[in-house]
């Protein structure tokens, strides 16, 4: 399905896509580091603490300190572990998270200024790869991200690791169902799987946002999104209350860091999907529009931290009960009602 919006833009070249890919990698990885700082500060202020204060002004250099620690830690591969799979697993998590980001619009499109040598005049698109089926692709890629924790747990020859991996597999598989079903109702209304079409559907101001038509789907998607990105109250993958850390028990240093970056990239992806599908997306015509979507994404990111500060986490059996006995029937009912309204 061609959209008029895309046709008006300059030709997308291979160089533009490569620049875009490098930008996504660099900025999102950096944001993952900065995200931890923001998370600790927000949590601290909500709990009447100060958070990191010692390294640099307001503890800002804490990011650098953490980064140095991650990079210089000893790289340990357990003796009886399957070393190859053990090393591949964190790469799968990080890679799938970034591949998913390739199909969502992040940052506005721009043309590289002419005065820069070699790359001057290259058009950099807002979506690295504008697929007609963007929504499905992102969900499918995030589903493939399950293999990171799963293989990590099985390769490390550790009981806690494999138990954590089993818990991860159950949680991801269950909540994927809710994510897919909840986003199906908006897809039925728009009649397309492309993010650009979703954005174009909601350009008539706040009143045309999908959230007013599909409030149930929005709440379900958000809950399932929290579960899929390992956020409180569903952070049973690593489960910080336990001394061991789930599937990542044997991991240290940068290998653990890659799980972490993948998780933060997924948080951003979920925020972008929620902002585009339910909260009106961006307005490509004005520069102001891009500012609003940044604010929306930042709001969802903040919401994840806010919820973490406000709520305790659920038990594993409550998690499953919530998914299969509450959220999934609700999602199905929502689809049924939407279909009846669309047909009628």
């Amino acid at each position: 399905m061609e959209t008029t919006l895309v046709e008006n833009l300059p030709q997308v070249t291979a160089a533009g896509v490569i620049i875009k890919a490098v930008l996504i990698l660099a900025i999102i990885s950096a944001l993952a580091g900065f995200g931890t700082f923001i998370e600790r500060k927000v949590l601290a202020f909500m709990q009447r603490r100060l958070g990191p204060m010692h390294v640099g002004p307001y503890g800002l250099l804490q990011i650098a300190a953490d980064g140095i620690k991650l990079f210089t830690k000893e790289d340990i591969v357990p003796q009886h572990a399957n070393a190859l799979i053990f090393k591949i697993a964190p790469i799968i998590t990080a890679a799938t998270a970034f591949i998913a980001l390739a199909a969502v619009p992040v940052f506005p499109d721009f043309t590289v200024p002419e005065f820069i040598p070699l790359l001057g005049g290259t058009f950099v698109p807002s979506i690295a790869s504008d697929l007609n089926i963007g929504v499905l692709f992102v969900l499918g890629m995030m589903a493939a991200g399950l293999y990171g924790p799963l293989l990590a747990g099985m390769a490390q020859a550790n009981k806690w690791g494999i138990l954590g991996a089993a818990r991860t597999a159950v949680q991801f598989l269950s909540y994927e169902v809710v994510t897919g079903l909840s986003i199906l109702a908006p897809i039925m209304i728009v009649g397309s799987l492309s993010f650009v079409d979703f954005n174009d559907y909601q350009t008539a101001g706040i009143g045309s946002w999908m959230i007013w038509q599909q409030p149930v789907a929005f709440v379900l998607f958000l809950i399932a999104g929290f579960a899929e990105t390992n956020r409180t109250p569903f952070d049973l993958l690593e489960h910080e209350a336990e001394v061991v850390s789930g599937y990542a028990t044997e991991y240290s240093g940068m290998r653990w860091g890659m799980f972490f970056i993948g998780e933060y990239a997924n948080m951003i992806t979920i925020s972008v999907i929620a902002a585009i599908v339910f909260l009106g997306g961006y307005d490509a015509a004005s520069t102001f529009g891009w500012l609003t979507i940044m604010l929306k994404i930042a709001f969802f990111f903040f919401l994840m931290l806010w919820v973490r500060a406000a709520w305790p986490h659920v038990r594993p059996d409550q998690l499953m009960w919530l998914c299969w006995k509450v959220l999934m029937p609700l999602a199905l009912l929502n689809i049924l009602i939407t279909a009846l309204v669309l047909l009628g």
């Binding site: 009886h80 572990a81 399957n82 089926i133 499905l136 692709f137 969900l139 499918g140 890629m141 589903a143 493939a144 399950l146 293999y147 799963l150 293989l151 747990g153 099985m154 390769a155 020859a157 494999i162 991996a165 089993a166 597999a169 159950v170 991801f172 598989l173 994927e176 897919g180």
Partner: peptide, 25 residues
């Protein structure tokens, strides 16, 4: 994408889940 979602995301994940009952190392 259906291949990705169905085979990679669901069917293979269930296989892997069953494989957790064995000593994989």
């Amino acid at each position: 994408v259906v291949q990705l979602v169905v085979y990679v995301g669901a069917i293979m994940a269930l296989y892997s889940f069953a494989m957790m009952f064995f000593d994989a190392t």
